[in-house]
């Protein structure tokens, strides 16, 4: 395969940037609305750098959940990066520190854009992921500033923004006609969460819903796991 350049990665990411910055800004606004410290929100974007997990923490804490529940939901959401990181592992070079730092630029979008026949393109991943990192953090900073001037979150309907956001992130994962297991996992997961809400402390229903992933054992084997999930990502945020 022909090795791309950082510039190729940056160019490929450019069309997604308005959406990324807006998404980062919405994280900043909703974090402030949920009573999260401005600095904490910005540190989180700089270190965790994974949208859905960050929104999960903010929404669980905002709904009165414990730290354990918020952390559990976020880490379980990010568990999807384990197979993605292993798939892309061969592309990284250099010593452990360099690998660790460059691996942080692995997010859904950079992973999908750098996916090539038979492997991943490191330069494209770093270029695309680097630009996304800048946009995500700039957006968060702007959102935190805007969020400071908000009055009552409920009046603005911001509590309704969270379920809408999670649904928008979920929808592209369910569009495959060939494999209905993600849809089944989503329905069972939502069912478990609703069933447990009246009887368990806040946050527990979301963690317990992960039991739905056991449906994976009923799944047909996929010929190419890399290709199978790549296109959905760009749809998700653009």
């Amino acid at each position: 395969m022909t090795e791309g350049s950082y510039r190729d990665g940056i160019r490929a990411m450019m069309p997604l940037m308005p959406a990324i910055v807006a998404f980062g800004a919405s994280f900043g606004v909703l974090a402030r609305a949920a009573g999260i410290d401005a600095l904490a929100a910005m540190v989180m974007s700089a270190t965790t750098f994974a949208g859905s997990a960050q929104f999960a923490v903010v929404s669980v804490l905002g709904a009165g959940g414990t730290a354990a529940a918020a952390i559990g939901a976020a880490v379980l959401l990010n568990a999807r990066y384990v197979p993605m990181a292993f798939a892309a592992a061969g592309a990284f070079r250099g010593g452990p520190l360099r690998r660790l730092l460059e691996a942080q630029l692995l997010v859904d979008e950079s992973w999908a854009l750098s996916s090539r026949e038979g492997g991943f393109d490191r330069s494209v991943l770093v270029g695309a992921g680097g630009l996304l990192y800048v946009g995500w953090n700039a957006g968060t900073a702007a959102g935190v500033l805007a969020g400071d001037s908000l009055t009552d979150p409920a009046t603005l309907g911001l509590d309704a923004a969270f379920p809408a956001l999670f649904l928008a992130l979920l929808a592209p994962m369910l569009r495959s006609d060939a494999d209905r297991t993600p849809l089944a996992a989503a329905i069972v997961g939502a069912g478990i969460a609703l069933f447990l809400t009246p009887v368990t402390p806040a946050g527990v229903p979301v963690i317990a819903a992960t039991a739905a992933c056991l449906l994976g054992f009923t799944r047909p084997r996929r010929p190419s796991p890399k290709r199978a999930s790549a296109p959905r990502v760009q749809e998700a945020r653009s």
Partner: peptide, 22 residues
């Protein structure tokens, strides 16, 4: 991978449900 892949849809759906109805 078949199982881990389903963590994200399951957790996102649970977040949709609890954030909307709880």
């Amino acid at each position: 991978a078949r199982v881990v892949d389903l963590l994200a849809p399951a957790v996102l759906a649970a977040l949709v449900a609890t954030q909307a109805f709880a």
